[in-house]
């Protein structure tokens, strides 16, 4: 079974690195980091990920806008994505990811176990 591909979009390089290290450490995922929101779409086209984690608050473009563009692009519209963001709290999401007005949200800061559980859940569907 080939490794699932995960694209991480966040303007904070240290965060994408930590996420990548934790994911790769399992040996089950191939991970790519992208720290510029405006590059997210191109990265997705090139990398063809199975799952994208999107930050919402980024200086150049909002994660919500990136998600809109993904949905508009026929080549990318099938890709699963989740917002990994500080704009929601754990009180709102509970443990793990939560569906809020049709989108999947994961609250920062996320723990490794939590992250892996969410990834499995999203890729399982």
């Amino acid at each position: 079974m080939s490794k699932k591909r995960i694209l991480l979009v966040d303007d904070e390089p240290a965060l994408t690195r930590m996420l990548r290290l934790n994911l790769e450490q399992t040996g089950r995922f191939e991970v790519r980091e992208e720290n510029r929101g405006t590059n997210a779409l191109r990265a997705a086209r090139e990398f063809q990920p199975d799952l994208i984690f999107l930050d919402v608050m980024m200086p150049d473009i909002g994660g919500d806008e990136v998600a809109e563009q993904l949905k508009q692009d026929p080549a990318l519209s099938k890709i699963k994505y989740a917002f990994l963001t500080a704009i929601v709290t754990k009180r709102e999401t509970g443990t793990g990811a939560a569906e809020i007005s049709g989108e999947t949200f994961l609250a920062k800061p996320v723990k490794r176990d939590e992250l892996l559980a969410v990834v499995d859940e999203l890729l399982d569907e």
Partner: peptide, 21 residues
């Protein structure tokens, strides 16, 4: 809070990673 959450997330995942490896 928003600004603090990113560093918190980095430290959290860093620690988790270290504990693993």
């Amino acid at each position: 809070a928003h600004e603090v959450k990113n560093p918190l997330a980095i430290v959290q995942l860093g620690l988790d990673y270290l504990e693993q490896v």
